[in-house]
Amino acid sequence: MAGLALPSLVLMLVINGYPVVFAAVQSVHGGGLIRLGPLVGAQNYTTALTDPAFWSAARFTLVFTLCGVFGSWVVGYALALLTRRAFPGQALFRVLLLLPWIVPVVVSSMSWNWLVATRDSLLPELARALGFGNVLFLANPTLAVITVCVFKVWISYPFMMMMSAAALEAVDEQVYEAATVDGASRWQQLRHITLPVTARSTYISWILMAMFSVNDFATIYLLTGGGPVNATTSLVVLAYRAVFQDFLPGYGVAVSFIMTAVLVVVSVVLFRQIRRSAMA
């Protein structure tokens, strides 16, 4: 059986391994997209770690990821709890809640641009009507960061809701009945029963969403392009610009490898939490 699987394993290794190896080689060389330049060692990594633009992108990436992970988890978990018990129209309601995840991100970003992009968009007009003046959501750096983070939560909560709903199915209803008899409140049941029982699924969803958020290029680029004044430039957008606009693939790939290293560390920490929750 191992011999039958060997060709597929070799093919997967070549398909997935070659780009990684080539990227690693490129990260320690200069040159452009077409021709590999001279060996520069760790210079690309040093340049990235001493570049103010890198740290600005890193800060935004951290904020964006934390909002994407915990914001979407709070909303998704709450909706999973809300739709857990049967009620009229439950199936239709669940399908409607999944729409932000189902609809292509291009369509979603265009819809949000229609809502907030210009002073004549719906939300700026509403802000003027309420007496807030000209609120330009994508022209003000702080408002742009908030808008992008809210957009990320909006398109990500369905994934968290599905993960949470699947985990909640494993909670035995008799446990809640016993807790109710013992006088436990709804909050106590949530804190001491629901959250601990669903902890493994929660940690897994955090790992996956952290990866999705750090590597999320389309959400940011389609909504703001990384602006204004680079306020919403994440590390993946910075790497894209370095490779395809500034023609510095070594620097861009170095940024990507730094991102990967941080993600590996975060994943290891959360996987340890999964083991602890399994042993508890």
Score class of each variant (00 low, 15 high):
residue 4 L to N: 04
residue 10 V to R: 08
residue 14 V to M: 10
residue 19 P to W: 01
residue 20 V to Y: 01
residue 34 I to M: 08
residue 36 L to R: 15
residue 37 G to P: 01
residue 43 Q to E: 09
residue 46 T to H: 10
residue 47 T to H: 09
residue 48 A to Q: 01
residue 54 F to K: 05
residue 56 S to T: 15
residue 57 A to D: 00
residue 64 F to P: 05
residue 70 F to D: 08
residue 72 S to E: 04
residue 82 L to R: 13
residue 82 L to A: 15
residue 84 R to I: 06
residue 88 P to Q: 12
residue 92 L to G: 07
residue 104 P to H: 05
residue 104 P to M: 04
residue 106 V to W: 01
residue 107 V to F: 02
residue 114 W to Q: 09
residue 115 L to H: 08
residue 117 A to F: 05
residue 121 S to N: 07
residue 125 E to K: 07
residue 126 L to Y: 09
residue 143 L to G: 09
residue 147 T to L: 02
residue 150 V to W: 01
residue 155 I to F: 02
residue 162 M to S: 12
residue 162 M to V: 15
residue 164 S to K: 07
residue 164 S to Y: 01
residue 164 S to T: 13
residue 166 A to L: 05
residue 181 V to I: 14
residue 182 D to M: 00
residue 182 D to E: 03
residue 187 W to L: 14
residue 203 Y to R: 05
residue 214 V to Y: 01
residue 215 N to S: 15
residue 215 N to W: 07
residue 215 N to Q: 15
residue 217 F to L: 15
residue 219 T to Q: 10
residue 223 L to M: 03
residue 223 L to R: 00
residue 226 G to S: 06
residue 234 S to P: 01
residue 237 V to P: 01
residue 239 A to T: 06
residue 243 V to C: 04
residue 249 P to G: 08
residue 250 G to K: 04
residue 251 Y to G: 10
residue 253 V to L: 12
residue 257 F to Y: 05
residue 262 V to S: 12
residue 271 F to R: 15
